[in-house]
């Protein structure tokens, strides 16, 4: 009986945690070699017109405060170290969203002498948002899908 009680308690705790995580995603944005098109779209996403604070999204300056790393662009040789360092500075649990064709596949920069490749050759990616650049709606959709998948994971676990 006591084991069951503990299990219910643990389950409830997990549910509360998942609820909080999916309702309060704080972002940090890192550009690892993008042409700036995707970055401008991300900034547009954060403007009052799309108002991401509805979903509890906040843009944070410090990787230590963030839950979701939004990456744009291919990874250049110079940015690789920095991308890794920003990723490693984030506290667990952390998620990565790759925004733009370049972040997914290297896009038009594929095969450049200074480009290593796409984001998931360097760090694990949880959601991909295609487009060159993707519209703000697409970026919001990507983040929301990531949050939905977290809830689904919780239910199957």
């Amino acid at each position: 009986m006591s084991i069951n009680l503990e299990k219910t308690f643990q389950d409830a705790l997990e549910q509360v945690k998942t609820w909080a995580r999916t309702n309060s995603p704080w972002l940090i944005h890192f550009n690892s070699g993008s042409c700036n098109g995707c970055d401008i779209e991300i900034l547009a996403t954060l403007t009052p017109r799309y108002d991401l604070e509805r979903f509890g999204v906040k843009l944070q300056g410090s990787p230590r405060h963030a839950d979701i790393l939004i990456c744009t662009g291919p990874v250049t040789r110079q940015a690789r170290e920095r991308l890794l360092r920003v990723y490693e500075q984030m506290p667990e649990p952390k998620y990565v969203v790759a925004v733009g064709s370049c972040a997914i596949s290297g896009g038009v920069f594929q095969g450049c002498y200074n480009v290593i490749g796409h984001i998931d050759q360097v760090i694990p990616v949880d959601a991909y948002v295609p487009g060159c650049p993707p519209r703000p709606e697409a970026i919001i959709d990507g983040v929301i899908k990531l949050l939905k998948s977290l809830e689904a994971q919780e239910q199957t676990a």
Partner: peptide, 21 residues
């Protein structure tokens, strides 16, 4: 001229921060 956060937003932020590493 935005909609703004939902009423439980600060609570969710707090619980999330407390459950993080």
């Amino acid at each position: 001229n935005r909609l703004g956060p939902r009423w439980f937003q600060p609570l969710a932020d707090m619980v999330k921060l407390l459950s993080k590493e």
